[in-house]
Design a protein around this nucleic acid. Structure first.
Length: 924
RNA sequence: GGGCUUGUAGAUCAGUUGGGAGAUCGUCGCCUUUGCAAGGCGAAGGCCCUGGGUUCGAAUCCCAGCAAGUCCA
C-alpha cells in the first residue's frame, strides 16, 4: 500500500534486507539475512527476559536523561514535559502521546513549533487496556513517551525518514544493542485525523519505539485509503517518534515484568503490606513470572477466556495446576496493578485533575476506585495517599509533585471516604433486596445487579459478596459489563451550529478590531465591505463580537441619518459580522457606504466590568482554595457573571466571604490591566498553560492579559484598571458537577443593584415581622418554634373536640338492623377532625359513621366498625356515592374512606343517599 | 454531553392502586436490676427538599427548581 515509502537509502546503505514475516506476513527490515520473522509479538516471543538487550541496566531517570541528552547532542532542543491532562485541547482529556502536545495548531502548521527539531519525554496516560495492567507483565496506565520530533514544510525540511532511522539505529547501538537483533517492521499508521507510513522498532521481541512519518490528513476527496478512511498528502510533514521509556528500562534490566523494572522499590513495599512473598532471587518464582510475561506477550489478557488460556499454558510449562498458579499469580498481579494505578493517580492529581463524575475527573475516579477495591481485596489498609507519597518520593525528577502533596492528601481522603460511603449504602441496598428474594426463594435477578452498578456504583462482585452474607445466591455472567453497556442506548445527536454565510465571509479581509486599542471609545466610522440579509461587514469596528464568555456588543449604525439597531455581533475567521434588527430589503446600506457606528456604552462597560471581575475572582479563588483550582467555564451578563472552577468539595460560606474580600482588595489596589500580543510559544514558556484557563485561542500570537496576579490568554474587553471594576459582590455558589463549583457574582453598578435587592428582601422580611433586620434570625427562629407548638396544640384541641363530639353522637345513633348508624353534618370541621371522630366512633364494632362538613366546599368521611364490615358495610362505596351527590369524588377502604365535593347545599341529600346505600349493603 | 437513582423523625430506612405519617437504632422519663451490658413500660421528636399543577383529597401522579448518588462518552 505504502510500500514505496519504505525504500530508504538508510536501509540500502547499511546492509538491511526487506523480508516478509513467515508468520504474520508483515514486511520488515533486518540486517540478519537468515531471519524469517518480524520480531514482534506474537511472531517472536520475548527473549530479553533474563537476558537484557543493552550493555547496562538503567533506571527511569537514567534512561530518560540518556535519551534526551543523546538527542540534545544531535541538535535537538529539549522541552519540558506537558501536563497529563490535555488542557490545550478539547477533543481528548488525557495526553496520550507526545505528539498530542503539538496538536492541533503545530501539526496543522498554523503555529510554529516551540523548537525544531525537539526532544521530549512526555508522561502519557492510556486507560484502554486497564484490565491487562498487572496481568500482562507489560501494560501500564502511565508511561513516558520519549520522542524526537521534526516539523517539516515543503521547501523547509529539517529531516525526514532517513535521518530518523539513522538516529534510531545509532541510539540503540549506543546502548549496546546487537544490531543483528533489531528489526524495523512496516506498519501504516493513522490516528487523530492524520496518517502516514510508520516503522516499529523491535528488539528481543519487544516493541521499544514507533517511528511515524505523518504526511497525510483525513479528507473525503483524498485518494489514499488507510484503514477504510480517505487521506491526502499534506503540505507539511512531521517526524513523530515515540520510544517507550519504561520498555527501554525493562529491556535493559530483563526483569520478569515491566513493573519490577520500573518501580521495584514500591512493588516490594506493597508486596510486604499485602503479605505477598516477592523473591525475584528465587529462581523458581522468577521463572513463573517470566513465563507468564513471555506468554502474556502473545495474547490479549484483558479477555477472561484468554486469561484462563494463559494460566493453562503457564501452568503446564512449569508443571503445576491452574488453581495453584492462579493462587500465586493473582495477588502478585493485584500488587502490580495497585502500584501502576497509584502512579497514574499521582500524575493525574498532581497535574490538577479533580476526581468527578464527568470528563477527565471521572477517569481519575475510575482508577482510584479500582485501586481501592484491589487494596481492600489484598487487605492493604493504609490510606491511598501513603502509596501516592511513595511515588512522589520515588520521582524526584518531578519536583512539582512535592508542592501538591497537601492538596492530594485532602482529595484522596475525601475520595476514600466517599467510596466507603457508597459501598456501605450499596451493601445495605443489596442486602435488603437479597432478603426480599430469599423469602421468595429466588436468586437476585440480573436486572437488579445491573441497576446496582449502573445507578449506585456497586460493582457486581461486591453485590455478590454482600448477598452471600445473607445467604442468597447470585448469577454473575462473564459479559456483565457489556450487558450494562447494552442498556445505554446510543442515540447521540450532535447539532453543530454552523454559520451559514461562512463561504461568503471567507472571501473578505479580516476586520480591524478597534476595541482592543481604544477600549473606552464608543463611536467610529467605517466602510461597508459587504451586506447580505441583515448581516453587515465593515473594514473596521468597535463592536465586540461574542467570544470568551462575553456576549456581543449592541448599539447602532447610522447611514445618511437612518439609524439601524445592531442586535448581535459574531466573528467568523477573523471577520466581524454585525447583525441588524431590520432585514436587508428595508436597509439603505450599499457596499462602499460610510457608516457611523455607536456602541451601547452601558452594556459594554457592564460586560467589561464583569469580565475583569472574572479574572480577579478566579485569582482570588485560587488563592483561597488552592492551586488546583482551574477555570472550567465562564459567562458574563449585564447584571451578573459566573465562573466555574474545578474544586473537590463544596465552597463554604467562609471561603466565599474570603474570596469576596480578596477580590475587592484587588479592586481597591487599583492595578493597571494590561494586554499584550505575544508569540504563543514564548507566552507558554513564560507563563505556562495557566494561560489557557478560559480556553485555547487559535493562531500563532495570542493576547496575554494581566489583571493583578492573574495572567491569561484572553480576547475580551476589560476595564483599564482594577479600580474601575467597582465593588464585586458574591451572589451564590452552585455545584454543577461533582468537582466543579459555579460562583456567581456581580460587579460595578450591577453589584450595587444586587446588594440593594438583597437589602430590600431583608427590610421587607423585617417589616413583615415588625422587627429590625438584625433581629430577624432570632425572631424567625422564635416564630418557627411557636408555629410548631401551635400546630401541636391545634392537634390536641382537635383530638379533645372530637372526643366531645363522640360522646354526644354515640347517643344519637339510630339502629339499622343490627347496626347503629351516625349520619350527620358537623359544621366547619376539617377533614382531620371528621376522621378522628369517625375513627373513635367505630371502636364500637357495630357502628357505621357518615360525617359531612361544609368547610372549603364539602368534606365527607365514612367509617365502619368491625362487625359492620362483616355485615357488608363498605364505607368506600358509600363515600364515593355521597361525594358524587355533592359534585366531587371520593373513596378509600371499606373501614375508612374520605371524599368531598363543591356543592354544600346538597349535604343532607348526600347523607340520606349514604344511609339508603348502607341499608342496601347490609340487606344483600 | 447523555443515561439512571434518591431527598420522609437526630441516624438508617418502610410507606402497596392517591384516601388515618410508620419501623429500627438513638434521645428522654419511669420500672426492673443495680457492677456493667441489657430487659420491661411510656414519651418527646416530622414545612414528608422547595415551588407550581392535576384532584373533593398528594409523602404518593405531572412539571420546574435545589440538593445528593452513580454509570457511560
Amino acid at each position: 500500500m505504502l510500500e514505496d515509502e519504505y525504500q530508504l537509502d538508510f536501509f540500502s546503505e547499511n546492509g538491511f534486507v526487506r523480508k516478509q514475516c513467515s508468520k504474520c506476513g508483515s514486511h520488515f527490515w533486518t540486517r540478519d539475512t537468515e531471519r524469517a520473522t518480524c520480531g514482534d509479538a506474537p511472531c517472536d516471543p520475548y527473549s530479553f527476559i533474563g537476558n537484557p538487550v543493552f550493555k547496562k541496566k538503567f533506571d527511569l531517570a537514567e534512561m530518560r536523561e540518556y535519551y534526551l541528552n543523546f538527542f540534545e547532542e544531535r541538535s535537538h532542543t529539549r522541552l519540558e514535559r506537558y501536563p497529563v491532562i490535555a488542557r490545550w485541547r478539547d477533543d481528548i482529556y488525557l495526553t496520550i502521546a507526545s505528539i498530542a502536545d503539538f496538536q492541533p495548531f503545530v501539526t496543522s502548521g498554523e503555529v510554529p513549533p516551540p523548537a525544531n527539531p525537539l526532544t521530549i519525554s512526555q508522561p502519557c496516560i492510556r486507560l484502554s487496556d486497564l484490565d491487562a495492567v498487572g496481568r500482562s507483565g507489560r501494560h501500564l496506565t502511565t508511561f513516558e513517551m520519549m520522542a524526537h520530533h521534526a516539523f517539516n514544510k515543503q521547501g523547509d525540511e529539517i529531516y525526514w525518514k532517513d535521518r530518523t532511522m539513522e538516529l534510531c539505529d545509532e541510539f540503540l547501538n549506543s546502548l549496546g544493542a546487537d544490531p543483528m537483533a533489531v528489526t524495523y517492521k512496516e506498519e501504516p499508521w493513522a490516528g487523530g485525523g492524520n496518517a502516514g507510513p510508520c516503522v516499529e522498532v523491535l528488539i528481543g521481541g519487544l516493541e521499544v519505539g514507533t517511528l511515524v512519518f505523518m504526511n497525510m490528513e483525513q479528507s473525503d476527496d483524498g485518494d489514499i485509503v488507510i484503514k477504510g478512511e480517505n487521506y491526502r498528502k499534506m503540505d507539511n510533514y512531521i517526524v513523530d517518534t515515540g520510544y517507550g521509556l519504561e520498555r527501554l528500562v525493562w529491556a535493559s534490566k530483563g526483569s520478569p515484568t515491566i513493573y519490577d523494572a520500573v518501580f521495584p522499590g514500591i512493588v516490594n513495599e506493597i508486596m510486604d503490606l499485602a503479605g505477598v512473598k516477592h523473591e525475584l532471587d528465587d529462581s523458581e518464582y522468577a521463572n513463573i513470572l517470566s513465563q507468564n510475561a513471555r506468554l502474556a506477550g502473545l495474547m490479549d489478557v484483558s479477555e477472561k477466556a484468554n486469561l484462563f488460556e494463559l494460566r493453562k499454558q503457564v501452568a503446564s510449562s512449569i508443571g503445576t495446576t491452574v488453581e495453584k498458579l492462579s493462587s500465586i499469580m493473582e495477588p502478585v498481579e493485584s500488587v502490580y496493578a495497585i502500584t501502576d494505578h497509584t502512579r497514574c493517580l499521582t500524575f493525574m492529581l498532581a497535574d490538577g485533575i479533580i476526581p468527578s463524575n464527568v470528563k477527565a475527573g471521572y477517569l481519575a475516579r475510575l482508577v482510584l476506585r479500582r485501586t481501592l477495591r484491589m487494596m481492600k481485596d489484598m487487605g492493604i489498609t493504609i490510606p491511598l495517599f501513603e502509596i501516592v507519597k511513595m511515588h512522589v518520593h520515588n520521582l524526584p525528577e518531578y519536583p512539582e509533585f512535592q508542592e501538591k502533596l497537601e492538596v492530594i492528601e485532602d482529595i484522596l481522603y475525601h475520595e476514600e471516604r466517599k467510596f466507603a460511603d457508597t459501598l456501605e449504602r450499596g451493601k445495605r441496598m443489596i442486602q435488603k433486596s437479597a432478603k426480599h428474594y430469599k423469602e421468595a426463594g429466588e436468586k437476585i435477578p440480573l436486572d437488579t445487579l445491573i441497576e446496582m452498578y449502573d445507578s449506585h456504583g456497586i460493582p457486581p462482585e461486591i453485590s455478590k459478596q454482600a448477598a452471600s452474607e445473607v445467604g442468597v445466591d447470585v448469577d454473575l455472567p462473564d459479559n456483565f459489563y457489556s450487558l450494562v453497556a447494552d442498556g445505554h442506548s446510543k442515540a447521540e445527536k450532535k447539532v453543530v451550529k454552523e454559520f451559514s454565510y461562512s463561504g461568503r465571509v471567507s472571501k473578505l479581509p479580516m476586520t480591524k478590531k478597534l476595541f482592543y486599542d481604544e477600549p473606552t471609545r464608543m463611536r467610529f466610522e467605517a466602510v461597508v465591505l459587504d451586506i447580505f440579509d441583515n448581516h453587515l461587514v465593515l473594514d473596521s469596528t468597535l463592536f465586540y463580537p461574542e467570544g470568551g464568555g462575553q456576549p456581543a456588543d449592541h448599539g447602532t449604525v447610522t447611514v445618511e441619518d437612518v439609524v439601524h439597531n445592531i442586535i448581535d455581533v459574531q466573528v467568523v475567521d477573523g471577520v466581524v459580522v454585525h447583525i441588524i434588527e431590520e432585514l436587508e430589503d428595508e436597509l439603505h446600506i450599499r457596499k462602499g457606504d460610510m457608516v457611523y457606528g455607536h456602541v451601547d456604552e452601558e452594556r459594554r462597560m457592564s460586560h467589561a466590568c464583569h469580565h475583569t471581575a472574572t479574572h480577579i475572582v478566579n485569582d482570588a479563588a485560587r488563592k483561597v482554595l488552592g492551586d488546583h483550582v482551574w477555570q472550567a467555564g465562564a459567562q458574563k451578563f449585564v447584571d451578573k457573571a459566573r465562573l466555574d472552577i474545578s474544586h473537590y468539595k463544596r465552597i463554604s460560606q467562609e471561603e466565599l466571604n474570603q474570596i469576596e474580600i480578596l477580590a475587592n482588595r484587588t479592586v481597591m489596589e487599583n492595578q493597571r490591566v494590561t494586554a499584550e500580543w505575544m508569540d504563543r510559544v514564548e507566552a507558554e514558556k513564560k507563563y505556562g498553560f495557566g494561560l489557557y484557563q478560559g480556553g485555547v485561542p487559535p493562531g500563532s500570537t495570542i493576547r496575554v492579559l494581566k489583571v493583578a496576579d492573574d495572567i491569561e490568554a484572553c480576547g475580551g474587553t476589560h476595564c483599564v484598571s482594577t479600580g474601575l471594576v467597582g465593588p464585586i459582590k458574591m451572589l451564590k455558589t452552585e455545584r454543577i458537577q461533582d468537582g466543579v463549583e459555579r460562583i456567581e457574582y456581580a460587579a460595578g453598578l450591577a453589584a450595587v443593584k444586587a446588594m440593594q435587592e438583597m437589602e430590600s428582601y431583608l427590610t421587607q422580611a423585617a417589616d413583615a415581622l415588625r422587627v429590625r433586620p438584625e433581629h430577624l434570625p432570632s425572631t424567625i427562629d422564635r416564630f418557627f418554634t411557636e408555629w410548631k407548638e401551635f400546630k401541636k396544640e391545634n392537634q390536641r384541641l382537635k383530638d379533645d373536640l372530637a372526643h366531645v363530639h363522640v360522646m354526644q353522637m354515640a347517643n344519637e345513633a339510630v339502629s339499622i338492623g343490627d347496626l347503629r348508624l351516625v349520619a350527620t353534618m358537623i359544621p366547619n370541621a376539617d377533614i382531620d377532625e371528621l376522621v378522628k371522630i369517625a375513627g373513635e366512633l367505630t371502636t364500637n364494632k357495630n357502628m357505621v359513621v357518615l360525617l359531612a362538613s361544609d368547610s372549603a366546599g364539602v368534606k365527607i368521611v365514612g367509617a365502619a366498625g368491625e362487625d359492620a364490615l362483616k355485615a357488608g358495610a363498605n364505607a368506600g362505596q358509600i363515600v364515593r356515592e355521597m361525594s358524587a351527590v355533592v359534585g366531587g369524588g371520593g373513596g378509600g377502604k371499606p373501614a375508612m374512606a374520605r371524599g368531598g365535593g363543591t356543592d354544600a347545599s346538597k349535604i343532607d341529600e348526600a347523607l340520606e343517599a349514604g344511609r339508603s346505600m348502607l341499608e342496601e349493603q347490609i340487606n344483600k
